Simulated scan of single mutants.
Amino acid sequence: MGALKAHEVSRFVDRPDLEAGIILAYGPDTGLVRETAQRLARRYAGNDADSMNLVVLDGAELDADPSRLAVEAKTTSLFGDRRVIRVRGAGKSLVMPLTELRDDPGSIIILEAGNLTPKDPLRALVEAAKLGRALPCYPDNDESLGRLISETFSKAGIRADQDTVAAIRDSLGNDREITRRELEKLVLFAADTKLLTREDVLTLCADNAALVLDEVVDATGTGHAADLDTALERAIAQSVNSQQILASALGHFTTLRRWRVEVDAGKSPGAVLDNARPKPHFSRRSSIERQLRLWTDDALSAALDRLQLAVADSRKRYGLADTVSRRALLAVCTMAAER
């Protein structure tokens, strides 16, 4: 069987066990799919992008003429070397020509596809083929992302402490291509100093609007009026509008209430956050734990009613939306301060 596990993919790409065959890179992480196919193409055809032995085709082209794949695979290289066929956007139209090729492909055929189910005919064909290898490409988890960060920085001679690596991990990981670009940006930034700090990462990689919204809701939830005022001024400076602020506050207090139900059922705030999906950023953990201890379910219900009223009011009186949202947040902040 040619079905590999996700953790086996990198090892296979480094040391593929096929001289000729069909390799399918598929999954929800399109950046990792593309990177995997590119690494395989270089492994088999060399680093020369213009190599006469490498043929790159688009799935849409082959949809119109699927037989072209078999023609390319069976064509002998002018130099007698192995031909490498890379197909981007491979789809079901290739099942028939690949069925004819799977026992004797004559070349290395590298297919790039999306998130295929186990019953998808293209994936099923490659997994069942003796000369087939199906490589799942899923978004990085904490372990694989941490390994990628470590390898990238080690190669560049850059030092980063655990808090810095954690900040990078929390900012990245949904798409390997984006992750690579962001890591390259960090490496370039630290090229002279060879040192990265958490502040550098937050400045270069994080969504600053999201960060300031976190500051607003955490100041509100912990009852710190001065911090709330500062955070609101920062939000205004970054062109975050009042509707975004109120929506963020509603989302935050709704989540707090859901977590509070678990606390009332006997879990500690720490245990609730350990099992939360997605986990809040590590820098907010102590603040959120405190909020879970401060707020009761009834109080959270009252806070949500106040925020929902503000949303409706701000839409009716658009010209006063900033004032309405500020008053509502201050009122909820006062509720927290009185607890």
Rank of each mutant, 00 (worst) to 15 (best):
Lys5Trp: 09
Lys5Ser: 13
Arg15Phe: 07
Gly21Val: 01
Leu24Thr: 00
Tyr26Cys: 00
Asp48Pro: 03
Ala49Ile: 15
Val56Asp: 15
Asp63Leu: 11
Asp65Tyr: 13
Pro66Leu: 04
Arg68Asp: 13
Ala70Lys: 05
Lys74Trp: 04
Thr76Asn: 09
Leu78Glu: 07
Leu78Tyr: 10
Gly80Asn: 14
Gly80Glu: 06
Arg83Pro: 02
Ser93Trp: 02
Leu94Gly: 01
Leu101Arg: 00
Ile108Ala: 01
Ala113Leu: 05
Glu127Gly: 04
Ala129Phe: 01
Lys130Pro: 08
Ala134Lys: 01
Pro136Asp: 05
Leu148His: 06
Glu151Ile: 14
Thr152Gln: 15
Ile158Pro: 00
Ile168Ser: 02
Gly173Trp: 00
Glu177Pro: 00
Thr179Ile: 03
Thr179Val: 06
Leu183Tyr: 03
Leu188Val: 15
Leu195Met: 14
Thr197Gln: 04
Glu199Gln: 11
Val201Asp: 00
Ala206His: 08
Ala209Trp: 10
Val212Ile: 11
Asp218Met: 12
Asp218Arg: 09
Thr220Lys: 04
Thr220Pro: 07
Gly223Phe: 05
Asp229Met: 10
Glu233Lys: 13
Glu233Val: 08
Arg234Ser: 09
Ile236Thr: 08
Gly266Phe: 10
Ser268Pro: 06
Gly270Ser: 08
Arg277Gln: 13
Ser283Asn: 11
Gln291Val: 05
Leu292Gly: 00
Arg293Thr: 13
Leu300Arg: 00
Ala302Lys: 07
Ala303Gly: 05
Arg306Tyr: 07
Lys316Pro: 07
Arg317Asp: 15
Tyr318Gln: 12
Gly319Gln: 14
Val324Phe: 04
Val332Gly: 01
Ala336Asn: 02
